[in-house]
Design a binder for these strands. Structure first.
Length: 321
DNA sequence: AAGGGAGCCAACCGCGTCCAT
DNA sequence: TATGGACGCGGTTGGCTCCCT
């Protein structure tokens, strides 16, 4: 399967920055064809451009396409990129499909020039998304308490290992969303981290690419609280509206004294009934439960008896909260 | 004002994959 | 099944701009 010589190697084919005339010629040509490019290889000749077809494709997809979003990345977009990168790695084109109007090249550049440095400053390895060793030179000399409280790398690695093969990116996003929520839950006494992680989770929920309705989150948390039973139910109440300011405040008040909640854990667990999962979304919740079912197999990945077992760590951390 | 370093980003390069034959 | 053309992707480069000295 030999690689065909690219037309870019032809003598006389123009390289480098595109001129306005070239842009106009490319756009007009594609518009004349009703947006249907056809063959990129044949495009330069058909449009009268002295460019390689590859170069034309790149110019169109990265710059001239009408649906490209201009301007700075929003905080929500940034968090979504980080979450997706944690789940997918350097799959820029896949990540780009989750951000409307953003190109893979743009995301890749933004990652390399902004996010990467930001993560390093926060003491997070931008490749593995794990906490860097304490002796790593943080620019601000601090580390994120939320990220250090939960065994996130284990959680995510196990979740990814379990979900990654059989499920699509939407399911992966849901697993990552769960991670964000666990972060939020784990960020006791750290309002900034709590809100940041809730916002990240909320951004994922509101993402146009999210494959599941927001309400399904309730099903997810219900399953986790009753099925896996590794988090105290009190923390999970009404989690879908968690990011609302008043609820955040309520959460902060509650977590200030975790043991002094007015209602018992059992009473709070009851709230996961019809109150929080309305009957009209029950079929959707069921569907989502099916998607997340592989996560229920997570304990099987490592022994409960093992001293470094995954679930044991989770349990210990959750009870500490 | 000028020079140099750093940051940014559009564009290029080459490999992997898909698909038609 | 093998082959080769075409496309798409991720890594890299190079030139422009900004900022600092």
């Amino acid at each position: 399967m030999g690689r065909s010589p690219c037309c870019c190697h032809d003598a006389g084919v123009k390289k480098g920055p595109w001129t306005e005339e070239e842009d106009r010629a490319l756009v007009e040509h594609i518009q004349r064809r009703g947006g249907n490019v056809g063959s990129w290889r044949g495009l330069p000749k058909a449009s009268g451009l002295n460019r390689c077809g590859k170069s034309c494709r790149l110019r169109w997809t990265n710059y001239l396409r009408p649906d490209i979003k201009r301007g700075n990345f929003t905080d929500d977009e940034e968090r979504l990129i980080i979450s997706l990168h944690a789940a997918l790695g350097n799959k820029w084109s896949t990540i780009a499909t989750h951000l409307e109007g953003r190109t893979d090249n743009e995301i890749k550049n933004y990652w390399n020039t902004h996010i990467r440095k930001k993560l390093l400053r926060a003491g997070v390895d931008p490749v593995t998304h794990q906490q860097l060793p304490p002796d790593h030179g943080h620019l601000d000399g601090t580390s994120s308490s939320a990220t250090s409280l939960l065994p996130e790398s284990l959680l995510w690695a196990a979740a990814a290992a379990t979900l990654g093969v059989g499920l699509d990116a939407g399911a992966l996003m849901q697993a990552q969303l769960l991670q964000q929520l666990l972060h939020a839950i784990g960020s006791n006494n750290d309002t900034a981290n709590l809100i940041a992680n809730l916002a990240a989770a909320n951004a994922m929920l509101n993402s146009t690419s999210s494959t599941l309705p927001n309400l399904l989150l309730q099903g997810q948390m219900n399953m986790l609280s009753t099925g896996a039973n590794y988090l105290q139910p009190g923390y999970l109440c009404n989690i879908s509206s968690f990011a609302e300011q008043d609820v955040v405040q309520q959460r902060l008040n509650t977590t200030a004294c975790p043991g002094t909640s007015s209602s018992s854990a059992a009473e709070q667990a009851d709230q996961f009934g019809d109150t929080f999962v309305p009957r009209d979304v029950a079929p959707a919740v069921e569907e989502f439960a099916g998607l997340l079912e592989p996560m229920m197999d997570l304990p099987g990945l490592c022994s409960m008896e093992s001293s470094d077992s995954f679930w044991k760590d989770i349990l210990e951390d959750s009870y500490r909260f």
